[in-house]
């Protein structure tokens, strides 16, 4: 069952009433915005199961369409995680949030085809996300006893699928194929750390730092560990919070739910492809701080200067 809340209201743009036939539907775990016109159908889907409520989409959206709801906390445990709600009147289906969502929770389909408009016209760079498996090092065909398929077991999002072929005895098996489900992977580097052969290589788009001031923590509070998608903050056997900064994807979901502001997540750098336009600069400043913005701008202008100098007559 799903309930329908259709927003066919008149928003005023420059004082002009515009009808935007955007339907907002709530399926079981998905929030679906659908805009249907005669020849085009835009569908934006938010997978609420995957969404961790980090608020990156709320920060970067140029139209301020996503709105983060408040988490429900009970006795130091998270009962309901914060979730994003989209304002159907404001969304323009540009796709900036699709590109930057750290947990791949948002997708846009145009006429049943997965597309991201801002990336298509190169108005926005693609955040660099990479997971590569070196087939030579992984020893395809090796016995699982040597590595115990830790990458598959430890993956927090079950994104790694290892095909194992049983050979004779019960406990032994042979790795036949190893696959990464790109949609599920959040690039947390856990597999990279755990692989004894160093066969997996991961690049996370966000770089920065994570600091947890445990002295501020209320007793028994484990909300941050509950929300963390990459298990960078976890609870050990004694019930204490353990921070593994190398697994942090710097999404900032823990910062959103922390009741005491004990967590600091600073994004210092975002890895991405070449920038062609100004939308990125605005998003970057919102996402990180002023400093990386200045750095990037100076990098860009220097590049321009160099190409200009190269093209000067008489210079080779």
């Amino acid at each position: 069952m799903w309930n329908v809340e259709l927003v066919w209201s008149q928003t005023t743009r420059r004082g002009i009433g515009v009808k935007r036939g955007v339907t907002k539907r709530q399926f079981d775990d998905n929030l679906v915005l659908e805009r249907k016109t005669l020849d085009m159908c835009y569908v934006l889907t938010l997978d609420e199961h995957r969404c961790v409520g980090c608020g990156i989409c709320e920060t970067i959206c140029p139209e301020e369409a996503p709105k983060l709801s408040k988490p429900v906390v009970q006795d130091g445990r998270l009962v309901e995680k914060p979730c994003v709600d989209f304002d159907a009147d404001k969304c323009t289906f540009c796709g900036e949030c699709v590109d930057l969502c750290p947990t791949n929770a948002i997708s846009i389909e145009i006429n049943d085809e997965r597309r991201v408009p801002v990336i298509e016209v190169e108005a926005f760079p693609v955040a660099k996300k990479l997971i590569a498996i070196d087939g030579k090092k992984c020893w395809l065909g090796a016995l699982i006893a040597t590595c115990d398929v830790k990458c598959q077991k430890e993956c927090p999002t079950e994104a790694i699928d290892v095909a194992v072929e049983a050979i004779g005895k019960e406990s032994a098996g042979r790795i036949v194929d190893i696959k990464v489900l790109g949609e599920k992977c959040i690039f947390c580097k856990k597999c990279e750390h755990i692989c004894p052969e160093g066969a997996i290589h991961v690049i996370t788009p966000f770089r920065g730092s994570l600091q947890l001031d445990t002295s501020l923590c209320p007793e028994g509070c484990q909300i941050c560990a509950d929300i963390c998608p990459s298990e960078a903050i976890s609870i050990d056997e004694d019930g204490k919070l353990v921070v593994m900064e190398e697994f942090c994807i710097h999404c900032g979901a823990c910062k959103q739910v922390c009741p005491e502001k004990a967590i600091k997540v600073d994004r210092a750098q975002v890895l991405h492809t070449d920038v062609q336009s100004g939308a990125w600069v605005i998003a970057l400043e919102k996402l990180t701080s002023y400093r990386p913005l200045v750095k990037e701008m100076s990098c860009k202008s220097e590049k321009k200067r160099r190409t200009r100098v190269k093209s000067l007559p008489g210079l080779r």
Binding site: K19, M40, A123
Partner: peptide, 18 residues
């Protein structure tokens, strides 16, 4: 128009086209 990434319903066509 081709490079613009933003599409919104057209006021002139009363939201039938983009």
């Amino acid at each position: 128009v081709e490079v613009c990434p933003v599409t919104v319903p057209s006021e002139f066509d009363e939201g039938l086209t983009l």
